[in-house]
Simulated assay, not measured.
Amino acid sequence: MMPMRRLILCLASLSTAYAAYTFPPRVVRNTGVPTGQLKNISGIQTYLSYPPNYTTSTKAILHITDIFGLPLLENKLLADSLAANDYLVLMPDLFAGDAISVEQQEAGLNLTSWFARHPPSEIDRVVKMIIGYMRGELGVERVGGVGYCFGGKYVPRFLTGGGIDVGFIAHPSGLTEGEVGGIGGPVSVAAGTLDASFNSTAKSRAESILNSNNVTFQSNLYYGAPHGFGVRVNQSVPQQVYAKQASFLQAVTWFDAWL
């Protein structure tokens, strides 16, 4: 019979191996408890998710969220999933505690006044401040930016020599051709066939602009993927589950190559 101590050690090893298998770095988390920490950076509540075994890095990712912002569990888990791939991740509260809840959105809340409270100038201010903190106090040398939905407009605005070196955007909303035309750094784009905010026509037009400007880019179009698929999906719909996982892998692979 195996001694009790050896049995316990074997079970512990199996448990550790199982955990590693269940949550490998290149699989995006959809459930569970967030592992990052909140920190006040010059008045901006910011979620920091650290790479395994260390708290500093010369490469880091700025996560510019959708309208659901910091309170959304999936946003925190997405930041944690990126961090698990050896990237320090910072996700600021873009809206000063005024993020939209899923319940408000599903109830059909009129967003006109909300957008008026959070104009591009204010979002730009927050992003600039966090980038400054990353490059200054944290000593980050290369900054990657991920932008989902609302945030997909702002990563391109800072890929113009404004602080982000490499970008990834998924199902952007409000992104203009002028902002696409200003992109100067490598960018990867994830779009969905069911996304009215950034449809296949908008994707093709963006590709044409990037190609004309000789920008390093890559793009994927995911079948059956609605707006928001990179963050929130219906886990019972295989096409949506695939689109979220594949777009996450798209982002990680892009940063591994260019950041």
Rank of each mutant, 00 (worst) to 15 (best):
P71G: 05
Y87V: 09
A202W: 00
G163I: 15
L78Y: 14
E137D: 10
V27P: 08
Y54H: 14
M91F: 03
Y154M: 06
S188F: 05
K128R: 15
E103M: 06
V237H: 05
S204C: 01
M134P: 01
N30H: 14
S247H: 03
Q104C: 13
S219G: 02
G69C: 11
I8H: 15
Q218G: 04
K39W: 13
I123M: 13
D195Y: 02
S81K: 14
P25T: 05
Y21S: 08
M129A: 11
N40W: 15
V146E: 00
G144Y: 00
S219E: 05
G132R: 08
P51I: 10
N213G: 10
V146G: 00
G178L: 09
L210K: 02
V89C: 04
N30V: 11
S13N: 04
M2G: 05
N75T: 06
F68N: 10
G151Q: 06
N211Q: 14
M4F: 13
V140G: 03
T193D: 08
L109S: 08
A170E: 03
K244E: 13
S121H: 12
L14S: 03
S101E: 08
E207S: 00
G161Q: 05
N110M: 02
D195M: 01
N214T: 13
V233F: 15
E137R: 07
L90N: 01
F115S: 08
Y223A: 13
V237P: 04
S212I: 07
S200K: 03
R157P: 05
P51K: 15
L73I: 12
I41D: 13
G228C: 05
Q240E: 15
G152Q: 02
G136Q: 06
G145R: 06
V143L: 06
G151L: 05
H171I: 00
N214W: 09
A60E: 07
R29W: 11
L48W: 10
V189R: 00
S208V: 05
G224D: 06
H227I: 02
A190P: 04
P25V: 05
L249S: 11
I61G: 02
S113W: 05
T46K: 06
Y54Q: 12
A84M: 06
T55H: 15
M4V: 13
Y154D: 04
G178V: 11
M91Y: 03
N75H: 12
P119G: 12
L38D: 15
P25S: 04
S200D: 14
P156G: 08
G182V: 01
S101W: 11
K244S: 07
Y223K: 04
T193M: 05
G224Q: 02
V146K: 00
A206W: 01
M1S: 10
L62Y: 07
P3M: 12
R142H: 13
P120V: 04
Q239S: 09
I169K: 01
G145K: 05
S49N: 15
K203C: 00
G228L: 03
G181A: 12
D256A: 12
T160W: 01
S81I: 13
P119T: 08
V102E: 10
A107T: 11
V89A: 03
A170D: 03
A246H: 11
N234I: 09
G145W: 02
V155D: 07
E141F: 06
H63Y: 11
Q105A: 12
P119M: 12
V89D: 01
W258A: 04
L94S: 09
